[in-house]
Design a protein around this nucleic acid. Sequence first.
DNA 1: CCGATGACTCACG
DNA 2: CCGTGAGCCATCG
Length: 100
Amino acid sequence: MDFANRVLDIIRAVPPGQVVTYGQVAALAGYPHRARQVGQALRNCAQDVPWHRVLGAGGSVRVDPPQKQLELLNGEGVLTQTGRISLKKYQWLPGPLNFL
DNA sequence: CCGATGACTCACG
DNA sequence: CCGTGAGCCATCG
């Protein structure tokens, strides 16, 4: 399993109404320095991966234009006030039993 | 091999 | 809050 696929699997595990950051996903995949590669993996992701739940550090949307992603998030109950999203409220904290 | 690029991040002014 | 610059690293021409 290469880095890209591990990233996609992790993102597939993010529940609706919650979000993760590029850096966080990279770290969970085992490569803390590869937030950029997470972005690249999402560039050609399959349709079953909830790419909209992935945000930049601090809860910012890095996709341009951002409106599509913001809509999807809103549809899941993630409020997007001032273009920023509160990681405090919505960031996904992986439980101990997720991956082995 | 080299240089440019980019859905990143952090530190500084 | 915004711009800059520096690390970072796979991918592409």
